[in-house]
C-alpha cells in the first residue's frame, strides 16, 4: 500500500486545477485527495464544466465515478446526483457530456487517470460484465450493516460495489442526527471516505465537515465517533472490512496489527495453523482463481508509508519463530 495516511483533509480549503493529462478533453478540473506513489492510482474531486463533452472511451485503470451535484449524460441517458459508475479497466463508456456541469468524485484504482477515445473495449479489458451505473439515492435502500461486531445504531449503508475476490467495497454511509459510538476502531484494510454532506467528529481528528476526506492505511485507530446533525458519505475499502473495537486510545498500529493476528489465531485456529505450517511467502493456490499470481509482499505488513515516500517497519513487541510444526492450542468447549 503506497498511499500515505491523509487525515483529515477538506477539499473546500483548496482550489481546482485543470486536468492536463493527454487524452482528456477540455473542461475537467480536479482536486487531488490522495495518490499512490508507486502506481499513480488516486482519488480526486472532479468538476466537469457546463458544456463538457467527451467521446466514447475507456480508462486503462479500473475507474469509479460518483456524481455529487449536477447532470452527467452517459450515452442517451441523463444522470443526476447520487449516480455511481463502476468501469473495469479497458471497458468503454459511451459518450459523456454535461449541460450544467457536474461535481463528481473519481477513483482511479490501479493507475493514474487516463482516457483513451474508443467505442470498443480494450482487447484485454477486465470483466466487462461488471460495468454498472447505479442511481444510489433513489435506487437503493439504506441497510443496517451486517458486520459483526457492528457499528452503533444510526450508521446505515448502501453497498455500491463489492470486489468478488477481496470483498473490498464501495458504499454510501450515513450517520443519523445524534449518532454516537463510544469505541475505538481499526481494520486490516485501508479505508477512505469523503463527506458528501455533514459533519462528524472523531476523537483523534476532530470535526470532518462537508468536503472532508481521509485515506487511512490499515491498523490506524479511529473513533470514538459522533455527529450532531448527521452525515452522508461515500467510503471504500481495499479488502474485507472487519471492525476491531477496543478502548485503548494510545495503542499503536503495530500493536493493533499484532492484536488482529492474535484474534485470527483465536477465532480461526485451523486457518492460522495452516498458514504457519505451509510456505507463506506467496499467495496460496485457489482452484477457483488458478491464474492469480499476485503476492502479498506488495501489501503493507508492519510497514507504513509516509507522504514523502519513505517507509519503515516496526519490530514485533514479542519475538516469534516460524516453526515447522506449530501447535495452536484450543480450549475444548465440551
Amino acid at each position: 500500500m503506497a498511499r500515505p495516511h491523509i487525515e483529515p483533509f477538506v477539499d473546500r480549503d483548496v482550489g481546482f486545477k485543470q486536468m492536463t493529462l493527454p487524452g482528456f478533453r477540455k473542461g475537467i478540473h480536479f482536486k487531488m485527495l490522495s495518490i499512490d506513489k508507486d502506481n499513480g492510482s488516486c482519488t480526486m474531486t472532479v468538476q466537469y464544466e457546463p458544456g463538457f463533452k467527451q467521446p466514447p472511451g475507456f480508462s486503462y485503470s479500473e475507474l469509479e465515478l460518483f456524481v455529487q451535484e449536477g447532470d452527467l449524460k452517459i450515452g442517451n441517458k441523463v444522470y443526476g446526483k447520487g449516480t455511481y459508475v463502476f468501469a473495469p479497466s479497458g471497458t468503454a463508456l459511451p459518450a459523456m457530456s454535461s449541460q450544467k456541469g457536474a461535481l463528481c468524485l473519481a477513483f482511479y484504482n490501479f493507475g493514474p487517470p487516463s482516457f483513451e477515445e474508443s467505442d470498443a473495449n480494450h482487447d484485454k479489458a477486465d470483466d466487462t460484465q461488471q460495468l454498472k451505473i447505479i442511481s444510489s439515492y433513489d435506487g437503493l435502500d439504506w441497510q443496517v450493516p451486517t458486520l459483526f461486531p457492528q457499528t452503533a445504531p444510526g450508521c446505515l449503508l448502501k453497498i455500491l460495489h463489492i470486489d468478488p475476490k477481496t470483498f473490498g467495497m464501495t458504499f454510501l454511509y450515513c450517520m443519523t442526527p445524534g449518532f454516537w459510538q463510544d469505541n475505538i476502531s481499526y481494520h486490516d484494510v485501508a479505508e477512505e471516505a469523503y463527506h458528501i454532506w455533514g459533519t462528524s467528529w472523531m476523537m483523534q481528528f476532530g470535526d470532518l465537515p462537508t468536503g472532508g476526506y481521509f485515506y487511512r492505511p490499515a491498523y490506524i485507530n479511529h473513533g470514538c465517533f459522533a455527529s450532531d446533525l448527521g452525515i452522508l458519505a461515500i467510503g471504500r475499502t481495499d479488502g474485507d472490512l472487519h471492525n476491531y473495537f477496543h478502548h485503548d486510545p494510545f495503542s499503536t498500529p503495530e500493536e493493533n496489527h499484532e492484536r488482529a493476528a492474535a484474534k485470527l489465531a483465536r477465532m480461526k485456529p485451523a486457518l492460522y495453523q495452516w498458514i504457519l505450517t505451509h510456505e507463506h511467502n506467496h499467495l496460496p493456490h485457489d482452484f477457483e482463481f488458478p491464474d492469480d499470481t499476485y503476492n502479498t509482499d506488495d501489501y503493507d505488513s508492519g510497514i507504513h508509508m509516509h507522504a514523502d515516500g519513505t517507509s519503515h517497519s516496526h519490530k514485533h513487541s514479542g519475538s516469534h519463530s516460524h516453526l515447522n510444526t506449530p501447535k495452536v492450542s484450543r480450549k475444548k468447549n465440551r
Binding site: 500500500m1 503506497a2 492536463t20 493529462l21 493527454p22 495518490i35 499512490d36 506513489k37 502506481n39 499513480g40 492510482s41 486503462y60 485503470s61 479500473e62 473495469p88 479497466s89 479497458g90 484504482n109 490501479f110 493507475g111 493514474p112 487516463s114 480494450h122 484485454k124 479489458a125 477486465d126 470483466d127 470486489d163 468478488p164 475476490k165 477481496t166 473490498g168 485501508a190 471504500r236 481495499d238 479488502g239 491464474d291 492469480d292 499470481t293 499476485y294 502479498t296 506488495d298 501489501y299
Partner: peptide
C-alpha cells in the same frame, strides 16, 4: 487501492507514460 480482483488487469498500462510520470 493495491490489492483487488483485477490486480493483473486492473491497470492495462502499468508502465506510466512520460506525461503520466511527470504528472504523478
Amino acid at each position: 487501492m493495491t490489492l483487488g480482483s483485477t490486480t493483473i488487469r486492473g491497470n492495462l498500462r502499468p508502465k506510466m507514460t512520460k506525461d503520466e510520470a511527470a504528472w504523478v
